[in-house]
Amino acid sequence: MRSMKTQTKRLTFLGIAVAIALVLSYIEMLLPPIWSAVPGIKAGLPNIVIILVLYGLSLKDAAAVSLVRLALVTLLFGNAMTLLYSLAGAVLSLGIMAILKKINSFSVVGVSIAGAVFHNLGQIIVAIIIMQTKEIGYYMIVLAFSGTIAGIFVGLLGGILLKYFKRLKL
């Protein structure tokens, strides 16, 4: 009976997590571009939710939230092309975060930074393949800096939220 209750709580939380991540994606879309010369500079707000689920629950749950968010964002705001970019970013980002969390040598902030930079890296790789232009790789120089800064903020926020999250006892 008790495990059933926990299961329901868990599922409800995951639903809320997807909803929050979706809203954060939308808010991020409304923000003006920071530097129009280099597309792809962003705060990575939805990653706060992904980090929370990755640390608070499990990699499986984080992957589920990430993929459902991706599907919804694509349906609401995107197309097949944006899905390709987002998917590459999401998979590489969550992949590196899961690995770094597992080896346990970095804090939430370090894991978040790696996630942010790998998100940019995934998108740049897709852009190079689709556009057949390796010069796009130079954008990565700027994105490495912006991703690190974004990752620090997202990681700090995720770390604070994680303390409160643990009180929920899911």
Binding site: S105, S107, G110, I113, I152
Partner: peptide
């Protein structure tokens, strides 16, 4: 140790 590694990670990326 984690804080040190975090800073190291940032330094490597930069």
């Amino acid at each position: 140790r984690r804080l040190r590694n975090d800073i190291l990670l940032i330094a490597v990326i930069f």
